[in-house]
Amino acid sequence: MKTSIKSLVIFTLLMSFFIGNAQWTKGKGNGYYKLSFWYLESDKHFTDTGKTDPNVTRGQVNASFYGAYGITNKLDAIVYFPFFSSTYENDVISGTTGETISSGETVNSIGDIDIAVRLKLLKTKRLALSTSLVFGLPTGNSQGGSDGSFQTGDGEFNQLLKVNLGTPFKLLNAPFYAKTYVGFNNRTNGFSDEFRTGLEIGGNFFNRKIWLIARSQIVESMQNGSLNAQNSQGSIFANNIEYTNIGGEIAYYITKKLGVSLNYTHPISGRIIYANASISGGIFFDVK
C-alpha cells in the first residue's frame, strides 16, 4: 500500500499548505513555511471492487517541513521534505492462547521529497489562475521491513502538472475563497498515471484570526501501468489506486505571521487504499 500512503500524505499536507485568499503565488520575497505531523492508523481498506475489507492494523506517522517561497511575483519555489517517516504494523495475538502469531514491525526513514514550482498565469480581482509542476523524488524507503511492505516511499519518480483556479468572495461579510484544480500525474516504473482534481472552500473569521476550510480531492487511475500482482511475483505494491476524500481544516493565526493548524481527512470511496481517516497538525509561519 505504499502508493496509497504516499497519496494520502501528499493530499493532506500539500492541500493544507495552500491556504490563502486564492493568492496562488506568494509574491516576491514572501513565503509560507510549515512544520507538520501527519498520522494515519488503518484497520480496513478499500479493495479493487470498492468495498471495504479488514486488515491488520497498520499506521504511518510523518514529520515534515513544507516551504513555499516567492522567487518573483509570478513564480514560487516549493519544497515538501518529510524528514521523518515511520510506518508500523501491530502484533497479531491469538485470541485463544494469547500467544503472538506474528510480530509487528516499525520502519523509520525519510520519506519521498517533493519539489515544485508554481507559476501565476492570471490574476484579477475576481479570478486567479496558476499552474504548478511537482516532482516526486524517490528518496523514501520503498522496500522496508521483513517483507518489503513497510514503505515510506514509492520508489518511482513522478511528475504532477496542475492547473489551479481560484476566486475570492464575501459571505456574511466574511472573506471567503473557492478554488479548484485539475492535474495529471505522470508516473514511472510501471505505475499507472493519475488524473487528479480537487475543490476547496475556505472562510476567514474572527478578524482574520481563524480560517475554516473544507476540501475534497478525487484521484482516478488511468489504468495504463504494467504493474500488477500477476507480473510482480508476489511483491508488495499497490497500483491503480483511486479515492475520493473529504476533509476539513482549522488554522489559527496566533500572530499575524505565526499560526497553528489541524486537519482531518476521510476517504469516502476508493480502490486499493486505506479506508480510515487521517489527521495532521502543524505550526506555520506565513510571511506576507
Binding site: 492508523e41 484497520d43 491488520v56 492494523t57 499506521g59 506517522v61 514529520a63 521523518f84 515511520s86 508500523y88 504494523e89 501491530n90 502484533d91 497479531v92 495475538i93 491469538s94 485470541g95 485463544t96 502469531i101 509487528g104 514491525e105 516499525t106 523509520n108
Partner: peptide, 20 residues
C-alpha cells in the same frame, strides 16, 4: 531524532485474532 523515533515506535500495538 531520538525523541521522535521513540514516540513513533510506541505507536505499534496489538490486534487480537479470533483463531479458535
Amino acid at each position: 531524532f531520538i525523541v521522535i523515533t521513540f514516540l513513533f515506535s510506541s505507536c505499534k500495538g496489538e490486534d487480537i485474532l479470533d483463531d479458535e
